[in-house]
């Protein structure tokens, strides 16, 4: 496959990764369409970050293939890397350097011309609302600002695909919502986004489609609404023999009718993606 003959922005074909005795990925098959915002969900250690690391070239797959806009990440890494921007989970900016210099180094690494680099830095800092901090050393920025600078840096070379690995981890709810708005804006401007998170509400708010990963295996893929509808839109939580039990219903009325049959405490709420994951694996996504 080459870059000119592709159907999907991201394609994984029977992808596996083994770290000594641990099988981190067990044959993942997946595709993400151009312009899609795709959320990759799973608990810690399920293989989310490993998948992204293979796609951006930070680690090699043990077997299988991965393509970015048709470019094989292993056979043609230089072209594949040009297709994507990557925002890692941990802040990896040069704290002693200014915001401008952090972005400028990235532009140089992606062989951007001087004039274009400068224009794009100004455009992106304006885009993320940090143009006034262009000369500030990164160490003077807040956590949310650093995260936005990292997103701007990843977008500098105009990638067609953006990888966001837990983009809002450790941020307070207000800042998180700001980042969500920014992510939506980036998608609306035509960038394909592949996002990992274990914040269920983040995936529900942002994603066109979600995939659930558990212990290196892909459990299910689908649109959030369709997945929830398949289970039932309403959840009834009850306690039986000191055990929490959840039942799902298509309507709130059905749930209420069923609730009165239970002698113990209960609550009725809207079902969410967490319920899908629990019903499939018996485990929670969030730690």
């Amino acid at each position: 496959m080459n870059g000119t003959n592709h159907k999907h922005a991201i394609e994984l074909v029977n992808l596996t990764k083994r770290y000594k005795k641990v099988e981190a990925l067990k044959g993942i098959n997946l595709h993400v369409k151009e312009g899609e915002l795709f959320a990759y969900l799973g608990p810690n250690g399920s293989g989310k970050t490993t998948t992204i690391k293979i796609l951006v070239g930070l680690t090699k797959a043990t077997s299988g293939r991965a393509f970015l806009n048709g470019y094989d990440v292993d056979a043609d890494p230089i072209h594949a890397k040009r297709q994507c921007g990557y925002v890692p989970q941990t802040i990896n900016l040069d704290h002693e350097l200014t915001v401008f210099h952090n972005l400028d180094i990235h532009g140089r690494l992606f062989h951007m011309e001087r004039g274009k680099r400068r224009d794009r830095i100004i455009f992106l800092l304006n885009y993320i609302g940090l143009l006034d901090r262009i000369k500030s050393p990164v160490k003077e920025l807040s956590g949310g600002m650093k995260r936005r600078v990292m997103i701007a840096r990843a977008l500098l070379h105009e990638p067609k695909i953006l990888f966001l690995d837990e983009p809002t981890v450790g941020l307070d709810p207000a800042i998180r919502r700001k980042i969500w708005a920014l992510i939506k804006k980036i998608q609306m401007d035509g960038t394909t986004i592949f996002l990992t998170t274990h914040y269920i509400e983040e995936a529900e708010f942002l994603a066109d489609r979600v995939a659930f990963l558990s212990e290196g295996t892909l459990i299910t893929v689908g649109k959030p609404k369709e997945l929830i509808n398949s289970l039932g839109q309403w959840a009834l939580d009850t306690v039986e023999n000191e055990q929490m039990k959840t039942l799902y219903f298509r309507t709130q009325e059905e749930a209420k009718k069923h609730a009165v049959l239970h002698p113990g405490p209960f609550s009725i709420r809207r079902a969410n993606l967490e319920d899908i994951f629990i019903s499939l694996t018996g485990r929670k996504v969030a730690p």
Binding site: L58, R82, Y86, T90, N92, D94, I105, H106, L109, F110
Partner: peptide, 14 residues
């Protein structure tokens, strides 16, 4: 510490 080395690894450079 800074994890900046990842920036070089994901860049299209040899």
């Amino acid at each position: 510490y800074w994890r900046v080395f990842e920036e070089f690894q994901v860049a299209p450079i040899h």
